[in-house]
Design a protein around this nucleic acid. Sequence first.
DNA 1: GTATAAAGTTAGATTCATCTAACAAATTTA
DNA 2: TAAATTTGTTAGATGAATCTAACTTTATAC
Lengths: 222, 222
Amino acid sequence: MNSFTAENYLKALFTTSNESEEVTVNELSKQLNIKMPTVTSMMKKLAEKKLVYYESYKPLRLTAKGKKEASRIIRKHRLTEMFLTQQMGFGWEDVHAIAEQVEHIQSREFFEKMDELLGYPRFDPHGSPIPDKNGKIERKNFNKLSECKAGEQVILAAVINTSVEFLKSLNRRDLKLGLQLKIKSISPADKTMEVSYGKRKSEKFSHVVCEQLLIENILKKA
Amino acid sequence: MNSFTAENYLKALFTTSNESEEVTVNELSKQLNIKMPTVTSMMKKLAEKKLVYYESYKPLRLTAKGKKEASRIIRKHRLTEMFLTQQMGFGWEDVHAIAEQVEHIQSREFFEKMDELLGYPRFDPHGSPIPDKNGKIERKNFNKLSECKAGEQVILAAVINTSVEFLKSLNRRDLKLGLQLKIKSISPADKTMEVSYGKRKSEKFSHVVCEQLLIENILKKA
DNA sequence: GTATAAAGTTAGATTCATCTAACAAATTTA
DNA sequence: TAAATTTGTTAGATGAATCTAACTTTATAC
């Protein structure tokens, strides 16, 4: 089995799995844009390699080995995204497509060097955590901006939607991770939020947009 | 046909071809470590795509289109090698293996950014020319150190042998591109050269080694 | 200048990742 | 709970890249 192919299945299994760490053949098929019979047959092969648990008609689950392998790939992807923005000057909207390719490079040294040059970052340019070398992922419980109340002050910590269009729309409004946002008001009609940040004193964000933005509460000094 | 595969054939055709730009099936087969029948069948496919001229029992030749495509890949390879040494801190002995993988990445922007960050370099870390965007290659007529005479002063411009072992052996002797070498004497018995450079006042290089080192004559002021 | 060796091709097999068509199981719905 | 829908599997085909075995052409050597 081509490592490229297997890696893409593992990554999809990892990122698509719900809280119970399960994925259905159907979900995976849609995610990868590969027909179900192909997925089934690949799952059998990955099961032989002890990377997934596979039983007919049951949801799929990564084994510990599979999880480790998957997070190794996600680590490479996210380190690459970080490298592309921090060291090469790409915008956060441009890095995904390139990282999808770079993540398959087989060279421990290459990614270790990136990590070192970046100062061992813990989050990628979209705020997603970078798994450590053992596959451990820092789980921060960020809340959605849409769940905040008027008057709150929060910090933009991550974006859920990482599509080029969405990120470009955020660029147009000078929105970046780390910015402090102040919620001035929320429209009762459609939940549109009026927010101020940086030099922008009054920006309106639709509810749909607010659901794609993850925030961190500002730490209170003891 | 997978672009990865085709790219490797094109690259090999380009780098293996002699002055008359011809390569035999046998040579290509050895170069790529792929059996002759496989090469033959791939050549027929590349011929359909107008990338090579193929006629039964005749040597292979890249078309103009094929040459352009091949030098695009070599450009990506060499830019990557340069990026790895200059921007990431790798040694010249470590970059080839990584560049073999990175060269297949499909992203104009990625390589343009590298080029820009590097200041549009014209040679890679081993002294090989980096093809320009149109596939044009600067041909410098470097001479072999082995052909120099005692008393000459020259500059180390490139290495022919880019194997890890050879480059490490040069590292051990503090030899780098750009160094000025002074040929102190040549043993009549085995053509071993006694050379001085930098802080090294007397280093001996066997004839075999001297054949792997390309030099540039020092420019005389007008 | 024929015999031998080397190089190249053809034919046919294999493995991988994919597909479609047909069938089976599980889930949802009426 | 039986019918309809969705999900999943099996079987069989396809195209890509590779191989080996057998054959043909070209080059080399005596």
